[in-house]
Design a protein around this nucleic acid. Structure first.
Lengths: 117, 117
DNA sequence: AACAATATATCCGTTTTCGATATATAATAT
DNA sequence: ATATTATATATCGAAAACGGATATATTGTT
């Protein structure tokens, strides 16, 4: 049986949070800073968007909490760490592909437009 | 004075509509079909999203109506044609850049194998 | 003549966004 | 020592956006 897909597109917030978690576990505030850093400061996620999105993503199975704590010397017990699930990794990969195709298409159109003129 | 930016990110719908209008004027239904075609059928935009988005995008100055009608023989008078404004083109360009950077970042970490851009 | 596809549009419940607000701890500066 | 800033999580609620359902009418096809 063909199960129905999760969503047509990820929301931008979900996309950027998944991207921030692609290579390591991070806690909420760290995700916030990483998104800002990775976008050259262009995208600033407020706490409402961040923690609201995290809640939904946990419920949807895109991410899960990682209970392993780092060395207590570098830890802060207020933190909650999150990691991608396999499902979340898959969704991120699909979205990256979609945007990759969109970019390819834009380039192709640019070329064709140049030839037409 | 530094005017505040339009939005942090475009919504996926707005992004795909802008992309569909990147190289030619199109009417609503045509945009709908183009988005579906350009995404290999993966993204299906319903009329609620389409015409709601168009309305907002007109108000925001991302697109404008193109009143020039094509040859009456190939025309359908029900149609309304839209084109990108300079502002819309700029926003699309910025968003493409953001996603391009995100993809580069992901590829750097070997998440995406074999996606050529 | 009947039917499917084209074309635009609105309604409305659901979901998402995002600034404001709250609370508390850790780190830094005065 | 104390004040301030940065870190860290969380909720609230209005506004925005989404998307299926519905409506209406025309065009093209069987």
């Amino acid at each position: 049986m063909k199960q129905k897909q999760y969503r047509q597109t990820l929301t931008p917030s979900v996309f950027y949070i998944l991207l921030a978690l692609y290579n390591k576990e991070r806690h909420g505030y760290e995700i916030m800073k990483q998104v800002e850093y990775a976008s050259d400061g262009k995208i600033k996620m407020g706490p409402g968007t961040l923690y609201g999105s995290i809640k939904r993503m946990l419920a949807d199975g895109l991410i899960e909490e990682a209970y392993e704590r780092p060395d207590p010397e570098f830890d802060d017990e207020r933190r909650k760490y999150y990691r991608l699930t396999e499902f979340g990794r898959k969704q991120l990969s699909m979205e990256l592909k979609r945007y990759g195709n969109a970019i390819k298409l834009a380039r192709l159109k640019n070329l064709l437009l140049g030839l037409e003129l």
